[in-house]
Amino acid sequence: MKLLFLLFSLMPFLIQAQTKADFENIPLANNSFLNDAGGTGLFESGHIALPNDYNADFDFWSGWAISSVTDNETPGFLNQYSAIAGGGAEGTANYALTYAFDPVVIRLENEAAGGAVEGVYITNSTYAYFSMLEGDGFAKKFGGETGNDPDFFLLQIQKYEDGQLHPETISFYLADYRFENNGADYIVDEWTYIDLSPLGNMDSLSFSLSSSDVGIFGMNTPAYFCLDQLITLDMPSADTYQNKPSWQYYPNPASNFLILNWPETNPAQLRVMDVNGKMMASEKLQSGKNEISLEPFPSGIYWMQIRRENGSFFYERLLIQK
């Protein structure tokens, strides 16, 4: 009994707080989508940030979009904002989707920055689902002409930590036709929960898609998937976000240089990471005014990790516009 009492007493300290990114905070009409995150270039929900790049001249977007589209019957790229499950996971309306011809990332922010991700719901986009099921003018139906091709559509999830992409990978087959018995072949059509806790602490998640249908122009299968209900675990407050000092760095957006006024007596290590989480620069911050050159950095969203000598760290966001 004493032991139980002790466990319950310690529970708040043993269990980290969870935050769910469900995208319901993003105002969206029924059956619509948002492919332009505006000036910040980020969609934010819970403690995650999803990079988005929208070109108004072309009405072209890349990165992530937020959707509440429910049409899961119309094939083709004109229905690219739809999840095959017909709505968000766990009965919610909104969900995130991405075009990931090249790998895309999700950045952990605020209390979750540098922490772990417990899990996420994933499903196919309607566009990719029907393309794999029936084929289209560009991509093959899975199984090929005979139905026997060992096709697959694979999502691989890795993490960036301290500016490095780590090799640990969680693989999830959005479609798998590699079974000898064709009856076992499947294409994911429901939200499926994926446990990401084995990845441990991270700065960001990296998602990459690959398919067996590849030509000289790369992957033919539409490089889309949908994501919802991503659960982050807050970092212990002593380590990170809560002890972020009141300090100044400017200008932001920056162009060719950045001034950082480090308010603490002890020096700290500054790491600048690009939108994917890849480390672009590492500098030592001395107490007082520091200046770093941003000349070699292309325009985009960056994150700065400031790590003290005692190991605690926090993040700041930086926008570079050339």
Binding site: L133, E134, G135, D136, G137, K140, K141, E145
Partner: peptide, 9 residues
């Protein structure tokens, strides 16, 4: 425009 051999319809 007919379907490809890797296309159902």
């Amino acid at each position: 425009i007919p379907p490809l051999t890797t296309q159902t319809r």
